[in-house]
Design a protein around this nucleic acid. Sequence first.
RNA 1: AUCCCGGUAGCUCAGUUGGAUAGAGCAGCAGAUUUCUAAUCUGCAGGUCGGUGGUUCGAUUCCACCCCGGGAUGCCA
Length: 625
Amino acid sequence: MSQHDARTSRPDALASRLDAGFRLALIAALTPALADRASQVDPLIKAAANPQFGDFQANFAMGLAKTLDRKPRELAQEVIDCAPQSLRDLCDPFEIAGPGFINIRVRPEVLAAALTAMDSPTLGVSSANGSRTVAVDLCGVNVAKQMHVGHLRATIIGDTIARLFERLGWRVYRQNHLGDWGLPIAMTLASLRRAKIDISRVTLDDLNRAYRSAQAQGRDDEAGLAAARATGAGPHRIAELEAQHEGASAALADAHDTLRRLQSGESAVVADWQKLIDVTMHEVYETAQLLGVDLKPEHNRGESFFRDRLVPTVDAFVAAQLASRDAGALVVRFEGRERPLLIQKSDGTSLYATTDLAAARYRVQDLGAELVVYCVDARQRDHFKDVFDAVRLIGWTARADSTEASLVHVPFGAVLGADKRPLKTRSGENFTLKALLDEAIARGRREVHARAAIADSPTAALSRAELDAIGQAVGIAAIKYADLSSDVGRDYVFDLDQMVSFEGDTGPYAQYAHARIAGILAKATSLGITCGAIVVREPQERALALNLLRYPAAIEDAAAQLAPNRIAAFVFELANTFNAFYQACPVLRGADDATRSSRVHLCDLTRRVLADALSILAITAPPRM
RNA sequence: AUCCCGGUAGCUCAGUUGGAUAGAGCAGCAGAUUUCUAAUCUGCAGGUCGGUGGUUCGAUUCCACCCCGGGAUGCCA
């Protein structure tokens, strides 16, 4: 996964204190041998690979011994002997194991104190307080096309990344790069007008049909075909262009004419065009709401938004002598790369790369983003590589404070059917996103209702509407968690049975853990048991404590790597650790008052961390299920 | 043809500055409940980390070559 800055994983609160202590020990032990270079030695503190090795381990001895020509275990012992009191106070006596690992076990009081310190509304997460800015390109629907599963990913991955940075206190600009301008939409518009369809009462289905029929009527691309042949493009591409060529028709001329009238601002055409957008976006917002995604009209920065910036963009590249004329078109060439970036067609019009260049400039120089994240299909890898390089060449990554903005593509893979081919319905059509979500919600509701029918179930007394709401949350969580829980760059097989099986690494499993805790806390309240001083005694309490303390580092890591699956992995681990604790450590029936109130406190903290992490994935955590 | 991405347990996948015995989930097997929600937990079994070579005290991780799968490849987005 791409990384947008040089920052390595941030250690959690405890690990960074251990790190600081070991650095002091290293300086004390190594200054005779290394002089001032001793302060540069990294103690390499990591979470222990296995609980039997303690909580953390320091791995510096082996590598360092090599450069100093010493025995690693001896070296480790010398550093331990120099440990300052501040470090010794944190843990039990160190153990040296294997070739020279130092095993570290944190004292229970230290864990308890660290948990108490994290018990605040921020949950230990530090905030940038709006001092940093990111733009997130997400959703990217095309006007007149129904949303399908591909848009699911661009939408929820982008929303999660946006939420992640919002949680970290960044200023976040969501950018919905709509396909709402240019020839494709003009073709649809022309097709509708030819068919004399009343655009004022048109439905998305009508638009969808018009879009497809417009595509079928074909685009002619003689210049493109000639160029493709001349430059030795793949047979695939040439065949595609030939097919289009055969379908060349008056439809194309009509579309070009419609586009010209749209561009010149002819009011009737513009009104129709706006209507197309409204109809399309109505369903997009509905779907976004269903998915819990924050996507509204104010986030629209579609192609049409950049229409007046296209000519200046091309001019800038020409003026900077970065663009050259080739077979009538304008291209930007890169050193060491055969493939150029086409920024103007031979007929003088611009194309998607031009818009992307203008958009990148806008995001960095107008919005002031230090980071621009593009949540777009992995097949556009090469395209974005070229666009980003072109933006750097012309210097548009330069920010006002003279730092350099990072442009990062987060490529996501395809959603596949059981046959490992892109997901289709039986009749070969793309699944609409709506159909998919409806199915998942139905499944979620069925499960929740079945559960509520069991006599002692906590949901037994709920109304049908309440159960439906929970079932919807469960169904949506199932789909979203499945999508976000593995490396987004990879394809995955859409398997609704697995997603809503509610066992193992799923959204409902995390929701269930949360609901259990909420149940305990509700009972605790009615019994008058409140949060008290935390005592870490049992191994399951220790495991839970260590897990909770990792939260701030986990989400900072997810942000640094732009990897939503890191959040999901944290959620799953915490739910797991909690369930083990729940099994082994009675909370409300604990041995004494102190134990009960300590465990209620652990439950409370766990519930809040779980809900917080899930909220970054925009997965709701119902109090009962 | 060139470039990009991937190949880890039967299946789906984690594994980021190279570290101890490569981890989960599902499926399989064996257990735990007069229980704070069993949508749970505990244990067992399951691997030449695609292959070969190299660097290293140590490689799933870095390098080279090869095999397999997918994608991209100038006037679509």
